[in-house]
C-alpha cells in the first residue's frame, strides 16, 4: 500500500499531538486545574489516527468517554478542547460538556457519550441519514471492548446490517473494561467474530500498528461508500493509563504492562518512518517540539478564556 509521504508525517504528528495533549491534561488535572473525571487515550493513538486518516471532514464519528484521541484525530483543535476541559466559554461546547462530551458538527463529531455503548445506535442513525441524503459520507462508531457486551451493540449493529448502512464499528479492544478483563466477560478470543452474528464482515487488526488500522479501516470505508454496508474492525490495543486518572491499576499484571509498553505505537511508528527515510531524526524532534508548544499554547488559551456567565446555565436547553 502506497501512502503519500506527507500523509505519513501527518499521521505521526497527530499521534504525537494526542499523546502530548493527554500528558499535559494529566498534569493539569493532578494540579487541580481541570475539574471532573478524566479518561485518557494514551497508548491507543494508532486506532483513532489510523481510522480517521481515511475520513473527510464531513464524515461522522461518535466518540466515547475516552474520546480526546478521537476528537484530535478527526481534526479537533487542542486549544478549544483544552478550554472545554477547563469548563470555559471558548471550549467546543461552552464548557457544558467537558472531557467526556466534546461535540462539533463542523468536523463531523456528533457527540461523545459517557455511557458505554450509547454511540452505537446514534452512529447507525447518522449513517441512515447519509444514505437517505444520497451522500457518500460514512459514520464511524468508536466503541470499547466492554461496549460489545451491551444490548445496544446487538440492536445497533443488527439494524445497520438490515438496512445496509454506511457505518463502521471500530472496537478499541484495550483489554480492560474499567477494571475487568474482557476475557472474563466474553468468551471470544477475537471480538471481530461477533460480526458473523449479523452477517457483516469483521476483521481483527493489531491496533498499535497505525498502518494496519489505516488499511483495514480503509477497506471498510471504501465498501461502505460504495453502498456495500457496514463492517466491524477490532483493533487490539492497550490502555497505558488507568481507566480514569487516579486509578491505581492494581488489576494489571506488571509483566503485561511492560510488554505493552514495548509495543507503544508512537516510538514504533517513528522508528518505522525513520527507517523508511520518510522522516529524519531531527524532523521527528522538530515535530515533537512544535506539538509541545501547541499544547502549551492550548493551556494558555484555556486559562485566558473567560468562565461562563451564571445565566448560561439556562441557555441551550431548547432550540
Amino acid at each position: 500500500m502506497e501512502i503519500a509521504r506527507e500523509k505519513l508525517i501527518d499521521m505521526y504528528r497527530v499521534m504525537v499531538r494526542i499523546r502530548a495533549f493527554e500528558k499535559k491534561v494529566s498534569k493539569e488535572f493532578a494540579a487541580g486545574n481541570i475539574p471532573g473525571f478524566l479518561h485518557l487515550y494514551t497508548g491507543e493513538e494508532a486506532v483513532a489516527v489510523g481510522t480517521c486518516a481515511n475520513l473527510s471532514p464531513d464524515d461522522y464519528i461518535t466518540s466515547t468517554h475516552r474520546g480526546h484521541g478521537h476528537v484530535i484525530a478527526k481534526g479537533g483543535k487542542t486549544d478549544r478542547m483544552m478550554a472545554e476541559l477547563y469548563g470555559k466559554v471558548a471550549g467546543y461546547n461552552k464548557g457544558k460538556g467537558g472531557s467526556m462530551h466534546i461535540a462539533d458538527m463542523g468536523i463531523g463529531i456528533i457527540g461523545a457519550y459517557g455511557i458505554v455503548g450509547s454511540g452505537i445506535p446514534i452512529a447507525v442513525g447518522a449513517a441512515l441519514s447519509a444514505k437517505l441524503r444520497k451522500t457518500d459520507q460514512v459514520a464511524i462508531c468508536f466503541l470499547g471492548d466492554g461496549a460489545t457486551n451491551t444490548g445496544r451493540f446487538h440492536e445497533g449493529v443488527n439494524l445497520a446490517a438490515c438496512l445496509n448502512l454506511p457505518v463502521i464499528f471500530i472496537i478499541e479492544n484495550n483489554v480492560y473494561a474499567e477494571s475487568t478483563r474482557i476475557s472474563d466477560t466474553c468468551k471470544l478470543a477475537n471480538l471481530a467474530d461477533r460480526a458473523c452474528a449479523y452477517g457483516i464482515p469483521g476483521v481483527t487488526v493489531e491496533g498499535n500498528d497505525v498502518l494496519a488500522v489505516y488499511e483495514a479501516v480503509g477497506k471498510a470505508v471504501a465498501r461502505a461508500r460504495k453502498g456495500q454496508g457496514p463492517a466491524l474492525v477490532e483493533c487490539k490495543t492497550y490502555r497505558l493509563r488507568g481507566h480514569f486518572e487516579g486509578d491505581m491499576q492494581t488489576y494489571k499484571p506488571p509483566e503485561e504492562r511492560e510488554m505493552w509498553q514495548k509495543k507503544d505505537p508512537i516510538p514504533r511508528f517513528r522508528k518505522y518512518l525513520i527507517k523508511k527515510g520518510v522522516l529524519a531524526e531531527k524532523d521527528a524532534e522538530r515535530i515533537d517540539q512544535e506539538i509541545d508548544e501547541e499544547i502549551e499554547n492550548a493551556v494558555k488559551f484555556a486559562e485566558e478564556s473567560p468562565l461562563p456567565a451564571p445565566e448560561e446555565v439556562l441557555t441551550d436547553v431548547s432550540a
Partner: peptide
C-alpha cells in the same frame, strides 16, 4: 425496524443530528 427500541430511538437521534 427489528424489535429494537434502543436502535429506533438511538437511530432517530443520529439521523436528527445530521439533518433528518
Amino acid at each position: 425496524t427489528p424489535i429494537s427500541e434502543t436502535a429506533i430511538l438511538g437511530g432517530a437521534i443520529g439521523a436528527a443530528a445530521t439533518g433528518m
